[in-house]
């Protein structure tokens, strides 16, 4: 459903991504593994349209996304759970979810919110609270809930486990696994490569802005050089 074809992107004079190509199929979890600064976040922001694509093309469900602004990319059915969560701190929990469901017809919004509350009961309990008063883990749930309130066709997550307690990380990965098999595609960027490879179908290894390795997640998990570079050597 998502096709990234030889994309180059960066900031100012700095080229971060060099001819990155990848695909995500319907119902698939794809993960991007790589060291800090490899360009993982840049890639997600470029797909989202928040950073311009300098060369190459991005397409989604036969629609060309290259050069489209983020609101149009969102309208195509893609949502990003950004690095650092970036919930709307001055909005309540419910308003954050309504912001996520912004493009949906009015009649569907209530149902969308109920679904999110059913998935994350803690958000329902705190629906009137300001997002800034939530704990880090709850904010991550909210960022995920905000994306799901849009019922996206493709969900992209940028380091969802960053800075969270292991128990919370476990819970978030359970939610992602539960999403598998629906019509939704998932593109997951994660520093916790071991966890990401464990739930993913396929994986790409990004190094200095280039895809250096790709394959079934299972195979990469067993690949010695990947294990040494990103999984801390022991496996």
């Amino acid at each position: 459903m998502l096709k990234v074809d030889s994309v180059c992107a960066g900031y100012g004079h700095i080229q971060v991504l060099s001819e990155v190509s990848l695909t995500v199929m319907r119902g698939e979890i794809v993960t991007i593994v790589g060291a800090n600064g490899a360009g993982k976040s840049t890639l997600l922001r470029t797909i989202m349209g928040s950073l311009p694509t300098r060369l190459g093309a991005v397409s989604f469900l036969d629609q060309r996304l290259t050069g489209l602004p983020p609101d149009r990319v969102a309208a195509a059915g893609i949502r990003l759970v950004p690095e650092g969560r970036r919930v709307f701190a001055t909005l309540s929990v419910e308003e954050n979810l309504r912001a996520g469901a912004y493009l949906r017809p009015k009649a569907e919004v209530t149902l969308a919110l109920e679904r999110v509350y059913a998935t994350f009961p803690v958000l329902g309990e705190r629906r009137r609270q300001l997002a800034s008063t939530l704990s880090g883990g709850q904010q991550q749930m909210l960022a995920l809930g905000r994306a799901l309130a849009a019922e996206p066709r493709l969900l992209m997550l940028d380091e969802p486990s960053l800075g969270l307690a292991p128990k919370v990380v476990e819970e978030i990965f359970e939610h992602l696994t539960a999403l598998r098999g629906a019509e939704i595609g998932i593109l997951l960027v994660e520093q916790n490569a071991r966890k990401a490879l464990a739930i993913a179908d396929r994986a790409y290894v990004l190094e200095h802005g280039r895809v250096v390795l790709e394959g079934a997640a299972r195979d990469l998990y067993r690949n010695e050089s990947v294990v040494n570079a990103y999984l801390g050597g022991k496996s």
Binding site: S50, D71, V73, P82
Partner: peptide
Amino acid sequence: ETAAQQGMH
């Protein structure tokens, strides 16, 4: 930036 990513123009 995040608002635009929700589809807000």
